[in-house]
Design a protein around this nucleic acid. Structure first.
Length: 582
DNA sequence: CACGTACCTG
DNA sequence: CAGGTACGTG
């Protein structure tokens, strides 16, 4: 009964997208190529030791040969989604207690790093050769010198120091500082040389990469140290060679300061801001008064001092070794390859100090990360939450959540319901959002906040929700266009006859997408909106407007005004059972 | 610059 | 559906 499968409808005129692409190619190609060059270098460094994979877009500019190369370049770009940490061995560190093995591992990692640096060096020269100016030759050589000798040495020293003396926690932080100092020195020299902006970009990127790699190494060692000496945080902290607390604070501040230079996004300000955003007010009150709060364990103590909330008894919270250990393991078990595994494995006491056994029931998370992970035991609620959070999150959120996990909130004055708020969107929320689409196609973020009351909103969550609706719209409009074109091909002339009824093919497609299982009664108003959308597309295409690159915009504008109110029932819960009429 | 949106891709 | 990117706005 359907002689014309929908997929067959061809565009009547050539697609506007094509024009855009062409324009881009000539306009920004050069600029883009520059950036791509730097990016691909870094990618090559961290991804693949294979030099061929390092093909840059410069080469594409200069020589049109080897399509394969550029393709492999693009391939890399795609596959790089989750930036793989260089060393897959990091995860192995957890659970390995033998010192020798550890040392061996560190040595290995050092070698890997050095090798990467060498590759980088090669690549850098390649790029530089392509560059016409010879002025910066000297600067380049300086960089290379630093990369190969100075930095390598420093790394070696740091690592040796770390393995030699596990008892001095401070070792970790000073080494951390050393790393940054080296980087700073490097940056000074680089800046001194008369570098082009391109080279500066490269150097910035390099510094970032190096800093990351260094802190990775340090972090893994620290993690090991802490898990070997549970309950000794206080002593270790007190053994810091700074006499007074103020000095310590200064020290931390300086560390943080250098961190800021390398990682502007990880500044303490942002951290605190996001913390406040991500969790409860009570905690943020405290943290906001601690400007030098950083992701490092030593600063944990600093947080408790200027306590703005009188009733908050931090010392009590810190008294238990079990808790301390858990805090540490959670605090440290982040940011590296396989952080899931390490986090879970490094927490000996899996029962949370606070009984919060799945307060929101079996929350099923559908992120690919979740799916791939096998849990030795079912994760407790804290882990669940952080996993959920992470599944939705960006790097920024990731670090934060690890810190937040370490805070025994329920001991503080935080209402249970606040804590109970989900820090990630669940399939239930997705379903709800889809149903809401029947009422609103263009929900504002404020509207979303009022309808997802059980969700702890932050940047990630908000944009994810918005993205959902964006995706919904995309699908919606694609269907509309498809069916409108099909109608034209079928010879329909009067758009008045185009109505979306409940038994129409178009409705089936939409219902399948937004209301799988048909367990919700689609409101009539949506059918009217859909009909109107279809008609708009129909007449626009028939009038040949689709030759205009932005011919859909007017339609979007019309449809965006047709949002209707969402039933109150949607506010109630994440998965609105009461809405689902069977 | 941050945010929202659209487009494209896997 | 999520990522990335580009573009327009405030």
């Amino acid at each position: 009964q359907n002689p014309n499968p929908p997929a067959l409808a061809p565009p009547l005129s050539h697609t506007p997208i094509f024009c855009f692409r062409d324009k881009d190619q000539f306009g920004n190609e050069h600029l883009r190529a520059k950036r791509a060059r730097v990016e691909s270098i870094i990618q090559g460094m961290s991804l693949s030791p294979n030099p061929i994979a390092l093909a840059t877009s410069v080469e594409r500019d200069r020589e049109h040969n080897t399509e394969k190369r550029t393709e492999s370049c693009r391939e890399n770009k795609r596959k790089q989604k989750l930036p793989q940490q260089q060393s897959p061995h990091v995860a192995q560190l957890v659970g390995i207690s033998a010192n020798a093995e550890e040392h061996h591992y560190l040595k290995e990692q050092l070698q890997v790093l050095q090798q990467q640096l060498r590759q980088l060096q090669e690549k850098f020269f390649q790029v530089h050769e392509l560059n016409d100016s010879d002025q910066s030759q000297e600067g380049t050589e300086k960089i290379m010198y630093l990369l190969t000798e100075k930095h390598g040495d420093s790394l070696e020293k740091s690592i040796q120091a770390l393995t030699r003396d596990q008892h001095k926690v401070l070792c970790g932080s000073t080494s951390e500082m050393e790393g940054h100092k080296v980087l700073e020195e490097e940056s000074k020299i680089v800046i001194k040389g008369d570098l082009s902006s391109e080279e500066r970009t490269l150097s910035e990127t390099l510094k970032g990469e190096l800093a990351r790699v260094v802190s990775q190494a340090v972090d893994s060692v620290l993690k090991k140290i802490f898990s070997s000496f549970p309950g000794h945080l206080s002593q270790m902290y007190d053994s810091l060679p700074m006499a007074t607390a103020d000095n310590r604070r200064e020290h931390l501040a300086s560390v943080e300061c250098s961190r800021k230079k390398q990682f502007p996004k990880a500044s303490s300000q942002n951290l605190v801001k996001s913390l406040a955003e991500a969790q409860t007010e009570a905690l943020s009150l405290v943290l906001e008064k601690s400007p030098d709060f950083s992701a490092y364990p030593v600063s944990l103590r600093g947080v408790r001092k200027p306590c703005q909330v009188p009733s908050m008894s931090y010392p009590l919270l810190m008294s238990s070794q079990v808790q301390e250990n858990q805090i540490l393991s959670q605090l440290l078990g982040y940011g590296q390859t396989g952080h899931w595994n390490s986090r879970i494995a490094s927490s000996p006491d899996r029962s949370s100090p606070v009984s919060l056994d799945q307060p929101w029931g079996a929350v099923k998370l559908r992120s690919s990360v979740m799916r791939q992970q096998q849990y030795p035991t079912s994760p407790n609620s804290t882990q669940m939450e952080s996993l959920a959070f992470l599944s939705a999150g960006k790097a920024e959120c990731r670090d934060l959540q690890s810190i937040m996990d370490g805070m025994p909130f329920s001991s503080i004055h935080i209402s249970f319901t606040d804590y109970q708020k989900l820090t990630a969107l669940t399939p239930g929320h997705l379903k709800k959002a889809k149903l809401m689409f029947f009422f609103t196609r263009y929900p504002s973020s404020t509207l979303l906040k009022t309808y997802f009351l059980d969700v702890q909103f932050n940047r990630c969550i908000t944009s994810q929700l918005i993205k959902w609706f964006s995706n919904f719209r995309e699908f919606y409009y694609i269907q509309m266009e498809k069916f409108a074109r099909q109608a034209i091909l079928e010879g329909v002339t009067d758009c008045k006859g185009l109505m979306v009824s409940r038994n129409s093919e178009l409705f089936r497609a939409l219902n399948m997408h937004y209301n799988k299982g048909n367990d919700f009664e689609v409101p009539d108003h949506f059918l009217e909106v859909a009909s109107l959308t279809l008609q708009e597309f129909f007449s626009a295409v028939r009038a040949g407007k689709d030759s205009d690159p932005s011919w859909k915009k007017p339609i979007y504008k019309i449809i965006s005004k047709l949002d209707s109110d969402i039933p109150e029932a949607f506010k109630s819960s994440s998965c609105p059972q009461e809405l689902l009429q069977s």
